[in-house]
Design a protein around this nucleic acid. Sequence first.
DNA 1: AATGAATGAGCCTTCATTCAT
DNA 2: CATGAATGAAGGCTCATTCAT
Lengths: 205, 205, 205, 205
Amino acid sequence: MTRATTRKAEAGGEDQAAVPRRLLSHATKLFAKKGFDRTSVQEIVEAAGVTKGAMYHYFGSKDDLLYEIYARVLRAQTEQLEKVVSSEAPLRERLRSAASDVVVSTIDNLDDNTIFMQSMHQLSVEKQKAVRAERRKYHERFRTLIEEGQESGEFRADKPADVIVDFFFGSVHHLGSWYRRGGALSARQIGDHFADLLLAALRPE
Amino acid sequence: MTRATTRKAEAGGEDQAAVPRRLLSHATKLFAKKGFDRTSVQEIVEAAGVTKGAMYHYFGSKDDLLYEIYARVLRAQTEQLEKVVSSEAPLRERLRSAASDVVVSTIDNLDDNTIFMQSMHQLSVEKQKAVRAERRKYHERFRTLIEEGQESGEFRADKPADVIVDFFFGSVHHLGSWYRRGGALSARQIGDHFADLLLAALRPE
Amino acid sequence: MTRATTRKAEAGGEDQAAVPRRLLSHATKLFAKKGFDRTSVQEIVEAAGVTKGAMYHYFGSKDDLLYEIYARVLRAQTEQLEKVVSSEAPLRERLRSAASDVVVSTIDNLDDNTIFMQSMHQLSVEKQKAVRAERRKYHERFRTLIEEGQESGEFRADKPADVIVDFFFGSVHHLGSWYRRGGALSARQIGDHFADLLLAALRPE
Amino acid sequence: MTRATTRKAEAGGEDQAAVPRRLLSHATKLFAKKGFDRTSVQEIVEAAGVTKGAMYHYFGSKDDLLYEIYARVLRAQTEQLEKVVSSEAPLRERLRSAASDVVVSTIDNLDDNTIFMQSMHQLSVEKQKAVRAERRKYHERFRTLIEEGQESGEFRADKPADVIVDFFFGSVHHLGSWYRRGGALSARQIGDHFADLLLAALRPE
DNA sequence: AATGAATGAGCCTTCATTCAT
DNA sequence: CATGAATGAAGGCTCATTCAT
């Protein structure tokens, strides 16, 4: 966990960003590219232009670095979902937005997402629990939306809501292994396709 | 790759199975449980009850072990899909079967699937290519099925077939991170739910 | 070595004692409990409730802390012995007092004694010399007492006086590894037993 | 703990002695000279002319090395005491021999003894327990000898036997901090002096 | 076909100390 | 007086792989 925050000037570009931020950002890139285990602390600090000692001043361990990355993503996604869910729009619109948005934000943070999928099991059991708990909360909020529609008859009710949630988030989490920036479709286009497919799958028969 | 085969198991239990098979099977369990990097060759040979020398007699490297596991799964799944696709059943039935079957076989080999998802990027680039090529072939066969339906008007045509394939296989590959044996739903039930959702999503509007 | 002294404690508890004293006292406890090398400067300053900078303000190094502890104990013990030796009491009484007193004061400062025994060799060679010199002076004063008795015929003369001194101080220095406060015998009782044993061992045959 | 033993030829001198033995012997010298914490594994393996990997092949940790040294000494001393104690000689002679012998063997293995005194507390708590237990057994056997004499009236009974044991072993354990080979007195001479002093201290008043 | 001792490179982490503020 | 970020050097340990037997 971050032991300190800094208030260094952030004008001038990456190289002058606060040390912890720089560490986090380079660690993210490297973890995504080579995997957590294959990335050495040495590589991280070299990329960030600091020394090992500096890293251990801010983060308790290599694990902590990973955990911070997770926590940041989870926080951001949860916040966003919260906003969409609690809006005034009709149910179908709220679900469509939530679905499309989570795709877009996943693509925008493809590295974090990749790490998430590949390295979670390398965290200490304790931290894994914390991460899973947060994730579960996220899924549950999404599920609530679906259940709401099942009760009102807007969505088919012959499939358990949690199976649908896992069905959809599987697709989302998998984006990292095939989506490439600069391809034919933009993040939003993928998001809309996915949202359409989800809503179509949910239409009552 | 296996350099040799051994005399048949002398009937009895796992313990007497051929050495390469025993190594592969224990490696699979350990990789799934702890990840490829976190599993040492020592652990594998101890679990399999052989020595390091023996392992290096049959497999060229730790990497090879992983590759063998992949190859086995890919071969099995490809064969199965081939069978379904080339049957005489109507298109919708063939797609439904293919979808449901891949879910069931993924669940039946959950460990292999988990390893697949988590450790592929730890293979040498060369072997990754081989694996990816095989996987692509698999996806393509599946895509063909969908395109067939889009051309005939049975399936909606406003979504690119490959987006649909990725959408669906995301769900499948993700099974390993939530499905637990002994839960409320059987492998086949999940398979049928997933197949239904896919087909519903494909209905023309 | 202490570079400065601070304003008197503002009355209250330990927490308000002068910073150097607090550092010394916590360092003593930690060194005795975990050994010099196993105790980090960080732990010491945390225990004392100050920062590293503060410690390095008062002490030149971690070594200095250890040296100060030694110096303090040595000074105290030497002073006390001096007092006893130069009293007017008969020789046997002076020796008995000196022996018993050194046991009691060793037990009273068990932590310091433990550190003394375990960590002396971790000091810089230079400081070790200073410590050893002081210790030798202490032993010599004790030895003089014994030689005096050997010359007068009160003590057996068939054993070198310095062997006797080492024999006795071995017992004393070893107290730290078995004596536990709250045991059956008080510090003074042990002191008297030890003194009795020493005097008995010295009786002419 | 030693994971394996070797049966290499031992002709030719130290350099060709079995690897574990060579490691143990150099570790002993270094620990005695610089202390456990100040000695790096690197130094040990360099002195022994092997690589780190080799060391970790035979010993689980640096701790293990220390433990093996202890165990070896304890075993040897216990055996020797056993022999003396159970002889047919008169009590005073048995005690005299035991006392003198333990001094001689301590001096003969001065390095081991030094390590013993300085580094025991750096072992894992678990191993410390094992060592202490063995030590206690050793002391108890010695104490039995004294109690026997107290009951028969040969030795003074006004001092607890265990205080006497600690008094004497303090002297013995302390040998390492003052005895220097090549000094005026041989190991046996010191042993006899110590034994005499002990027996004199035990004479009934 | 199999053993297991040995290698050698690399990894995560700790820590006393310095220094700008 | 005091802070705490940063350094830089070690340190203990792991591990895939090789090789003589």
